[in-house]
Write a protein that binds this DNA or RNA. Structure first.
Lengths: 328, 328
DNA sequence: CTGAAAGCGCTAACAA
DNA sequence: TTGTTAGCGCTTTCAG
């Protein structure tokens, strides 16, 4: 592999001039430029980013932390991040933590080691203390999951309101026994969505019964299946279910169809509007999050941060999408 | 941020010694080591990978090219790649090309520019000519999609056989009118799967009718829905459908349920065994690919390549998973 | 066992 | 407009 020296020699100019050509500096005569360019072609030269990165002390890489790419919720967010990043000459490194602290540490170190310029975390399981420490010296943005009252800027939706609206929709349909399938309440979104669920129930004077609230360990389909099966074993069965993610809701739907015959179909609502939610049978009523926009904004915020600008947290709008799973 | 110089100064040793401590060289007395270590702690020092990478002329990053992460088929493969990479001190950079050549070029350049040490391509839309050129000077592995008779090592399954077995399964169930939903035949897997489909039909003296073969533009759910709708409009409707991916098959299933009443249910088989395939109603019969293993092997092959070893292409086993969509 | 020094490939300040 | 040169932070050879 040729280096900048060899190009300079071949073209009969200095390395500085080659560098100027490489970086489209204006102060190069067309004649010199051509000389350099033909030397580059001749030697099949590709400038090394390693040298440039060291010199400029940047990597133009941003890290995107997420627990697992198997949750399609992240797909569109990632698209948003990626498109924004690329158009700003950045690249993204997708980092699956699998909710393992060791993994997380690897990625934190990449930032500390200058191998990445900043980090967008979408991982609810992230170690907030460590992330806060990192954020003192490095650009960090939270996306979707965030810390209340924390100092890291975030972009998210109003989870409490979303849950409230989802449950209210179920109530308006005449349901009075509404179950909640949620995940571990160590996660803020789970606490907020539960709060929204309870607010709706209270507002309509409906009972909040612990046995109708099921906590899953993860957000995989199977967790939703499992949850629904348990709820169906109750003496007093719910007539409707609100799940805090589409993956759980889809699992619940699966447990419902082909299961025991019930006097009434059980209505189901999810959150996220993942693409698969329109392929289930029945199709899933859900709250749509502006995933692409969240990703786009998170990336913009990160880049502002990297430039040293201050950025404000944002809360985006969501929308109830009514489909077959709540149409009896 | 402290650098190695400052540590050396603080510890009263040379930078060489600090470097030795950093890299666990044996030839450092415990006493010197402690001095250095406490200096590191005191200054909160983190070694810069930028310097190391330049010096060693490696990035310990591998690129993973795929058309879109929204196809869950890639999830498990990526897990396999990632786990292998991490345990070898590598990181992966997921690269969505969106089937756009500009995107692809960005990633190829990262390898040329030394920003990445090698590349695993799972992108059927990849520009094979350019990839071959790249492979002359850089480590490249193909995963899933490959080039027949090409010189880039690959890991894949026997697509022709998989398709043959899927269709044979439909035939054994008594189906004689079997449609094929496939994608553009510029892709090798599409050609191979069609070949398997035709081999099975011929073997049982069943007709191959062009109107029962539908080509989709992409592999999204919606493409499958669309395809099935067209097939249902035919005068002579097929009684079974083989789709070359689970996403298409799931779309087909969706078009089928809630649609017009048919004398017999239409059987559907897919390929991939993505996690959704078990959540549809009915659940999907499919050919399971060993996705995790494919990813694992691809990563190992790439690392061997990066060490300069020769590697052999591999064809892995698949398996027919029978579920409700072919159980009438 | 430790230090001095060269150098990886590039950019940018300064000089000409 | 172009060249000279210092140096980004690290590893590694060679000497001691």
């Amino acid at each position: 592999m040729a280096n900048i020296q060899q190009i300079a020699q071949k073209a009969g100019v200095s390395v500085a001039t080659v560098s100027r050509v490489l970086n489209n500096a204006t102060s190069v005569t067309q004649k010199t430029r051509s000389k350099v360019e033909s030397a580059i072609k001749e030697l099949n030269y590709e400038p090394s980013m390693l040298g440039r990165n060291l010199r400029k002390s940047e990597s133009r890489l941003m890290l995107v932390l997420l627990p697992s790419i198997s949750n399609p919720f992240y797909n569109e967010i990632i698209n948003g991040i990626q498109n924004t990043a690329i158009s700003n000459n950045y690249n993204i490194l997708l980092c699956e933590t699998d909710s393992k602290p060791e993994r997380e540490n690897i990625y934190f170190n990449m930032v500390k080691n200058k191998l990445a310029d900043g980090i967008i975390s979408m991982d609810p399981t992230v170690n907030m203390q460590k992330l806060n420490e990192l954020a003192e010296n490095h650009p960090v943005i939270l996306c979707s999951e965030y810390e209340e009252g924390g100092c890291i800027p975030y972009v998210t939706i109003d989870s409490e309101l979303a849950a409230y609206q989802a449950v209210k929709h179920l109530i308006k349909l005449g349901n009075e026994k509404i179950a909640l399938i949620t995940s571990d309440e160590k996660f803020l979104y789970a606490r907020l969505r539960r709060a929204g669920y309870e607010r709706a129930l209270k507002e309509f004077h409906l009972p909040i019964r612990e046995e109708w609230i099921y906590h899953t360990k993860e957000l995989e389909f199977q967790n939703g299946v499992q949850a629904m099966r348990i709820l169906l074993q109750l003496e007093e069965k719910p007539t409707a279910v609100f799940a805090v993610s589409d993956t759980l809701a889809i699992g619940a739907l699966k447990a419902l169809n082909g299961g025991l015959k019930l006097p009434h179909p059980i209505a189901v609502v999810g959150i996220d509007n993942i693409s698969f939610s329109n392929m289930t049978n029945p199709t899933l009523t859900t709250i749509s999050q502006p995933m692409y926009k969240m990703g786009l904004l998170a990336a913009e915020m990160l880049m502002d941060r990297m430039k040293g600008k201050k950025v404000e947290s944002m809360i985006l709008d969501h929308e109830l999408i009514i489909r077959e799973s709540t149409m009896g």
